[in-house]
């Protein structure tokens, strides 16, 4: 199984992971909770997915540039390969970074056709600025407790994050996974004894995977991606927090037809199947 090989490679190449993290990617899936204000951008989703998926073989060609949240890295590489396999005249160029970094690049005129964000507010901002036209939610992700393999801190649940003797890491509250983590802790009524507020989810994951932290809060897909170096512990049902990722075409893109086709493919059954294999839930 592909996932497995990838997981092993990741565990072995811890240093590489650290390097990748460093490149400023906020990898964190940036996800903000599916807040009430996100409804308006989600309504277009089903319609768009339905109509465009119906015509995947329309004569599209050239290059389609896709900006995607870093947390989508592995999944979108496979999605893009599958899309290219079905549209031989099209080349997908992927650019991964934190959603907020990508948003800034798009606003500064970067020539992208598609933007897949790990949080709603970035897309909302683009829609307001007229840079994006209608967005569709395409996956959901949820928070999980992550511990090093073997769970040396004997962590059982969120309450353990208050333990002074454990080395506890969260995402910084400036980044969405940090906000989400604090939301879960608030739900559980736990005041965490934090040792580090990591700037993004992957750097948190890296430190947990290396055993330098006893426990952290990250996305479930990140736990999967980290493979055997870490273990994930589900939150209790009443503490669960989730986030929804929107995808949108961009008005200044050079290849709108191919961009729309790519969005449709992501929303199609095949695209959803690939995303599910990386641990993402349907929205």
């Amino acid at each position: 199984m592909k996932l497995h090989a990838r997981a092993r490679a990741l565990a072995a190449a811890w240093a590489l992971a650290a390097v990748l993290t460093a490149c400023g990617s906020d990898a964190d899936g940036d996800g903000e909770r599916a807040a009430a204000g996100t409804d308006e951008v989600t309504t277009a989703s089903t319609a768009q997915g339905g109509t465009r998926a119906a015509a995947p073989d329309a004569a599209i060609e050239g290059t389609v540039t896709v900006f995607a949240a870093a947390s989508l890295t592995d999944a979108f590489e496979e999605v893009a390969a599958a899309f290219e396999a079905g549209n031989r005249e099209v080349t997908v160029e992927l650019s991964f970074a934190s959603s907020s970094t990508l948003r800034e690049q798009i606003l500064a005129g970067a020539p992208a056709d598609v933007f897949a964000s790990a949080n709603q507010s970035n897309v909302e901002e683009l829609v307001e600025a007229g840079a994006a036209t209608g967005a569709a939610d395409f996956v959901e992700n949820e928070l999980q407790i992550v511990v090093p393999a073997g769970n040396p801190g004997a962590v059982k649940g969120l309450a353990d994050l208050a333990d002074d003797d454990l080395l506890v890491g969260l995402c910084a509250q400036e980044v969405p996974c940090g906000q989400l983590g604090r939301e879960a802790l608030a739900k559980a009524g736990v005041t965490p004894s934090i040792d580090t507020d990591e700037p993004d989810v992957r750097s948190l994951l890296t430190k947990v995977g290396a055993g330098e932290l006893d426990v952290g809060l990250v996305y479930r897909t990140d736990v999967l991606a980290a493979g055997e170096a870490v273990e994930g512990i589900d939150l209790a049902p009443d503490q669960e927090v989730t986030t929804t990722y929107p995808i949108t075409t961009l008005t200044d893109g050079g290849n709108p037809e191919a961009g729309a086709a790519f969005v449709a493919f992501v929303l199609s059954a095949r695209g959803q199947e690939i995303l599910a294999s990386y641990g993402f839930d349907p929205p």
Binding site: A18, A172, D197
Partner: peptide
């Protein structure tokens, strides 16, 4: 870079 990777980040 070295600071955030090695020492973490806590106000």
């Amino acid at each position: 870079g070295a600071t955030v990777t090695f020492a973490g980040n806590l106000q």
